[in-house]
């Protein structure tokens, strides 16, 4: 019970400080779940994101379910997920009820113009951390940059990109590692 409550509260706190979708949550997850609570490793978080990308549902919710399940089974998954959505329900409820023109307020727009810059920096820092766990040599570095370019400059869906990368690994990862092609 204590663990379930801790999962709920921890994820509720993360829900409060996530501005703008699953990717914006990543730096917060790294700090809270990996560094502070030690509930998962950098690599595991990356795996959850990859899976969350090509399964239905919102990435933040999928990641919460994964981490909760790993800690305390099905109930853990449900507690973490309810935690991450809890602040949204309260905040959006209040805004919908009392502040119909909330997003038009000048002060809100100025604050979010600043916050968006910060979220960009935080995601950049998150990528640098993930790099160490994901890029083991030349081939994996090439995959990373290839996906970055494809995803930034084309409309190819990230679902397809993740599936293609997985299939590539299924057939070639063994060869890449054996042949020593991954030397740095």
């Amino acid at each position: 019970m204590k663990v379930l409550l801790e999962l709920f509260i921890t994820f509720a706190k993360m829900g409060v400080v996530t501005f703008g979708g699953g990717y914006a949550m990543l730096p917060i997850l790294q700090r809270t779940v990996v560094d502070d609570k030690k509930w998962a490793t950098e690599e595991e978080i990356l795996d959850y994101y990859a899976i969350g990308q090509c399964t239905p549902g919102i990435i933040a919710v999928n990641t919460a379910t994964f981490i909760g399940y790993k800690q305390k089974g099905i109930l853990g998954g449900i507690s973490a997920t309810l935690g991450v959505i809890f602040p949204s329900i309260i905040i959006i409820g209040i805004i919908s009820a009392f502040l119909k023109n909330f997003s038009d307020l000048a002060v809100v727009q100025h604050a979010f113009a600043g916050i968006r810059v910060c979220v960009g920096v935080l995601i950049l820092n998150a990528v640098i951390k993930l790099w160490k766990g994901a890029v083991k040599g030349k081939v994996t570095a090439a995959i990373m940059f290839f996906v970055l370019i494809i995803s930034a400059f084309t409309d190819i869906s990230s679902v397809l990109i993740v599936i293609a990368a997985g299939i590539f690994g299924l057939f070639f990862a063994g060869k890449i590692q054996n042949k020593g092609a991954e030397k740095k």
């Binding site: 990717y23 990543l26 690599e43 990356l46 795996d47 994101y49 990859a50 990308q53 960009g120 995601i123 950049l124 998150a126 990528v127 993930l130 790099w131 766990g133 994901a134 890029v135 083991k136 994996t140 570095a141 995959i143 990373m144 940059f145 290839f146 996906v147 970055l148 494809i150 995803s151 930034a152 990230s158 990109i161 993740v162 293609a164 990368a165 997985g166 590539f168 690994g169 299924l170 070639f172 990862a173 063994g174 890449i176 590692q177």
Partner: peptide, 18 residues
Amino acid sequence: NVFYTLRPAATGLIASAG
């Protein structure tokens, strides 16, 4: 094996979002 290439791909996607 699947995750060996999936991890750099996911990192690329996150970099692109950033």
